[in-house]
Simulated assay, not measured.
Amino acid sequence: MRTTTALRTLAAALLTSGVLAVSATGTTATAAPPTLARGHGGGGGAFGGFRTLGVVVAPGFLDVRQLPTPFSPVVNRLLPGFQDRVQCVVLGPSFNGNPYWFWLSGVRAWAPAGYVFTYGARVPYC
Score class of each variant (00 low, 15 high):
Arg2Pro: 14
Arg2Trp: 10
Thr3Ala: 09
Thr3Phe: 12
Thr4Pro: 02
Ala6Asp: 01
Leu7Gln: 15
Leu7His: 08
Arg8Val: 10
Arg8Thr: 14
Arg8Trp: 00
Arg8Asp: 11
Thr9Cys: 05
Thr9Trp: 04
Leu10Lys: 15
Ala13Gly: 13
Leu15Lys: 04
Leu15Cys: 04
Thr16Tyr: 10
Ser17Cys: 06
Gly18Phe: 07
Leu20Pro: 02
Leu20Glu: 05
Ala24Pro: 01
Thr25Ile: 05
Thr27Met: 08
Ala29Met: 08
Ala29Gln: 13
Thr30Ala: 14
Thr30Gly: 12
Ala31Cys: 06
Ala31Gly: 14
Ala32Arg: 00
Ala32Lys: 00
Ala32Thr: 11
Pro33Asp: 06
Pro33Arg: 15
Pro34Glu: 15
Pro34Ala: 15
Thr35Tyr: 11
Leu36Asp: 15
Arg38Gly: 07
Gly41Ala: 11
Gly42Arg: 03
Gly42Gln: 03
Gly42Ser: 11
Gly44Ile: 01
Gly45Thr: 01
Ala46Phe: 08
Phe47His: 10
Phe47Ser: 08
Gly48Ser: 15
Gly48Phe: 01
Gly48Asp: 12
Gly48Val: 02
Gly49Cys: 02
Arg51Ile: 09
Thr52Asn: 09
Thr52Lys: 10
Leu53Ala: 07
Leu53Lys: 09
Val55His: 04
Val57Asn: 05
Val57Arg: 02
Pro59Arg: 12
Pro59Gly: 13
Phe61Leu: 14
Leu62Gly: 01
Leu62His: 02
Asp63Arg: 13
Pro70His: 05
Ser72Pro: 06
Ser72Arg: 04
Pro73Phe: 04
Val74Gln: 03
Val75Ala: 02
Asn76Arg: 15
Asn76Met: 11
Pro80His: 13
Gly81Asn: 09
Gly81Ala: 06
Phe82Trp: 05
Phe82Asn: 10
Asp84Lys: 03
Asp84His: 03
Arg85Gly: 01
Val86Asn: 10
Val86Gly: 05
Gln87Ala: 15
Cys88Leu: 07
Val89His: 01
Val90Cys: 06
Val90Tyr: 07
Gly92His: 08
Gly92Ser: 15
Pro93Trp: 03
Phe95Ala: 14
Phe95Leu: 14
Phe95Asn: 08
Phe95Gly: 00
Asn96Gln: 11
Asn96Lys: 06
Asn96Thr: 08
Asn96His: 07
Asn96Cys: 01
Gly97Asn: 11
Gly97His: 08
Tyr100Val: 08
Trp101His: 04
Trp101Val: 13
Trp103Asp: 02
Leu104Phe: 14
Leu104Lys: 01
Ser105Pro: 05
Gly106His: 07
Val107Pro: 04
Val107Gly: 04
Arg108Cys: 09
Trp110Gln: 08
Trp110Glu: 00
Ala111Leu: 03
Ala111Asn: 02
Ala111Ser: 03
Ala111Gln: 01
Pro112Cys: 04
Gly114Pro: 02
Tyr115Gln: 14
Tyr115Glu: 10
Phe117Val: 05
Thr118Arg: 01
Thr118His: 02
Tyr119Glu: 11
Tyr119Pro: 00
Ala121Thr: 04
Arg122Val: 04
Pro124Asp: 02
Tyr125Pro: 02
Cys126Arg: 15
Cys126Val: 02
